[in-house]
Design a protein around this nucleic acid. Structure first.
Lengths: 211, 211
DNA sequence: ACGGGCATCCCCGAAAATGGGGATGGCGAA
DNA sequence: TTCGCCATCCCCATTTTCGGGGATGCCCGT
């Protein structure tokens, strides 16, 4: 049975390249190719594809947000991220949002086709070092660090003040450091905790602290 | 023993007016009058006044933040807010920051002088309906409402999504409402919970939820 | 029928935060 | 001694949020 696939990728060249690769496989049919998340969200529900190849760095609605939305369909498609970004944050966020696979754009055509087939049968295709990062992450999880221990004392101070409703400038004043430093701390905190912003960071901190 | 007082008020007219009132009292000495929080923070520690009359609506560093800072001195002055704002939020925030008294600007001169004397001897001078709001607040506290029950279902949804790291636009998408509505919800949430921003709101929500 | 809470949407301008760089020095482990 | 982590500060441009106004309609209780 042939699998229907949709491509969401803002770069026209790459979008058509992906579609072309898909067309080389007799068991795969590319039923749509969109440049934006908005477009995809509007048309994918009607197309009901088996698989969606999703760029992560879309203009407007991000690929991650788009994944979250698509996964709310009645029978959502399997989604494979296809991207240049290999940083842990984007990977985890995409997976958290419901992505089923994660390929780097440099993947050979055959890997792409295999991924489409694989994901449709319940697999979770990932480029090798993406998979590596994922397992590394879970390694670091179970052993000991409850993800909070990794936040340095100074960073915890910042988090506490954030939870008290202070803005960066005020936190800087209170700690006797510059706003930029507070900013840096927050940036690092968000990276470490794999969260998107200070709000989620505070929410997680509270969740851990109280448990 | 005469009490030394500092005035922090951006409006020149009102500032001098306050200083003039203070000068009419033989037991009170106005040792400084500043227009900004920055100026006050720089010079108050050296002046070591007994009491500070603080405007709440200062340009730059807010009166509330200024209070928080001044209260970190070795032997901090007593601080009386003198302001036109009578909304609960500012009142609670100022008190939370460490303000000892809270007068409305329309207070008669004698009340002002009494407040200075009062606060210096451990009192908590407040204009009548300011005091009223404060007790009202604590009334509503103990009875039942853990301050969270007052948040409507929809608002709790928004809070939950905020805690998950979503931004307004995304929350709007997920709930099928406009960003402006999300904004409204957040504004109302902050009012109800007497918090300054969504971060503190989420922190409080978590604190309540987990307890 | 009026007020109040809820939920929805709108405007403006300003302030704050984010995302992406980068740089420095210190300190401790490999 | 090099590498990584911590902590500090800086820049830019863009996005997001905030702080004030508003407005509407619905529903509920008095």
């Amino acid at each position: 049975m042939t699998k229907s696939v949709v491509v969401v990728e803002d770069d026209r060249g790459l979008r058509e390249q992906l579609a072309a690769i898909l067309r080389t496989a007799p068991d795969i049919k590319c039923v749509g190719a969109f440049a934006t998340g908005e477009e995809a969200l509007a048309k994918v529900p009607a197309l009901r594809p088996d698989v969606v190849l999703m760029d992560i760095g879309l203009p407007g609605i991000s690929g991650i947000e788009c994944v979250a939305q698509l996964k709310k369909m009645e029978s959502p498609p399997q989604i494979v991220m296809v991207t240049v970004y290999e940083d842990s944050d984007r990977i985890f966020r995409a997976l958290k949002a419901g992505a089923n696979g994660y390929l780097v754009k440099s993947s050979p055509p055959e890997e792409l086709l295999d991924a489409v087939r694989d994901v449709d049968t319940g697999g979770a295709p990932m480029s090798s070092h993406i998979a590596c990062k994922v397992v590394e992450h879970f390694h670091g999880q179970e052993p000991e660090a409850p993800e909070k221990a990794k936040v340095s004392p100074r960073e915890q101070q910042v988090l506490a003040l954030l939870a008290s409703g202070f803005i960066y400038k005020e936190i800087g004043d209170q700690l006797g450091i510059s706003v930029e430093t507070v900013r840096s701390h927050v940036k690092n905190i968000c990276q470490k905790m794999h969260v998107r912003n200070r709000v989620e960071a505070v929410a997680r901190l509270q969740a851990k602290t109280s448990s």
